[in-house]
Computed example of a mutant assay.
Amino acid sequence: MFVVVNLKAYPCDPVAVAEAAADVADETGVRIAVAPQAADISRVAETGVETWAQHVDAVDHGSHTGSTLAEAAAEAGAEGTLLNHSEKRLRLADIDGGLRAAERVGLESIVCANNPRQIAAAAALEPDAVAVEPPALIGTGTPVSQADPEVVTDSVEAADAVGDVDVLCGAGISTGDDLEAAAELGAEGVLLASGVAKADAPKAALRDLVEPIAE
């Protein structure tokens, strides 16, 4: 199982969370990545944790003020990027362009989507993985695997029908039980944020999260 911790723009210490994630990954053998703000990618990567960008733009070098260049993210230490999170929605052409930008510099990619229909469309663009996240459940503490498990199973079927694309489960993930449930429904990983980024003790939260699948 792959655990991606999206720090969004929460007022947490990204380095402290990254250090906690690196320690837990080393202790348990679970693959854990942290996605900080673009300005913090370098500092987070220096902790040794697998580091992802929250977004890259469909641009190359040139006149693109305010854009996140894939080359800059990779040079700062990012190994992958999220695209089309529900808080950073993109047009289909921009998702495709972002994926090509990520490929250009060797970044892995996860495209987020709201439901199985969107998962099918996202998978057709050939990212490394897709993540299903019903927006209504994000940040609620109620996981989609509990609120509407068919969203996960239908998303896995939709992705499988298109090609070899892993499906992650997001929205409301916060406990080891949530992670186990996602795995039982066919997900290859989870995408979460507040359950770790807002935790008083991020390391303990991560330990509790991955304990059911630790080596």
Rank of each mutant, 00 (worst) to 15 (best):
F2E: 09
V3C: 02
V3K: 03
V4H: 12
L7F: 01
K8W: 05
K8A: 09
K8P: 13
K8Q: 11
A9K: 06
Y10A: 05
P14F: 12
V15D: 10
V15A: 10
V15R: 08
A16S: 11
A20R: 09
V24L: 08
V24D: 13
D26P: 00
E27C: 01
V30N: 13
V30H: 05
R31F: 03
R31N: 01
P36D: 07
Q37S: 10
Q37G: 04
Q37K: 06
I41N: 02
S42A: 15
R43H: 13
R43T: 07
R43G: 00
V44M: 12
V44N: 13
A45M: 12
A45T: 02
A45D: 08
T47P: 13
G48F: 03
G48Y: 03
V49I: 08
T51G: 07
W52F: 13
V59E: 10
D60V: 11
D60E: 14
G62S: 14
G62I: 10
H64R: 06
G66Q: 11
E71D: 10
E71L: 08
A74R: 15
E75P: 01
G77K: 06
G77S: 06
G80C: 07
T81I: 04
T81G: 02
L82P: 13
S86M: 03
S86N: 13
K88W: 12
R89K: 14
R89Q: 15
R91S: 11
A93Y: 06
D94V: 02
G97H: 12
G98E: 11
E103A: 15
G106Q: 06
L107A: 04
E108Y: 05
V111F: 02
N114T: 13
N114M: 08
N115G: 07
N115R: 11
Q118D: 14
A121H: 07
A122S: 14
A122R: 05
E126N: 14
E126A: 13
D128C: 05
A129S: 15
E133H: 09
P135E: 04
P135Q: 08
A136C: 00
G141C: 07
G141I: 09
T142E: 15
V144K: 05
V144H: 07
V144P: 07
Q146S: 14
Q146K: 12
A147M: 04
A147K: 02
D148P: 01
D148C: 08
P149L: 02
V151T: 15
V152L: 09
T153R: 12
S155G: 09
A159S: 04
A159P: 02
A161Q: 15
G163W: 03
G163E: 02
D164N: 13
D166E: 15
V167W: 10
G170L: 12
I173W: 08
I173F: 04
G176Y: 02
D178R: 03
D178M: 03
A181H: 14
A182N: 11
A182C: 12
E184C: 00
E184K: 14
L185K: 08
L185H: 03
L185C: 04
G186Q: 06
G186F: 09
G186L: 04
G189H: 06
L192E: 10
A193I: 00
A193C: 07
S194R: 13
G195I: 00
V196Q: 01
A197V: 01
A199E: 07
A199R: 08
K203M: 05
A204Y: 01
A204I: 01
A205D: 05
R207T: 15
L209K: 11
E211D: 14
P212N: 05
P212V: 06
P212A: 05
A214K: 11
A214V: 07
A214H: 11
E215H: 03
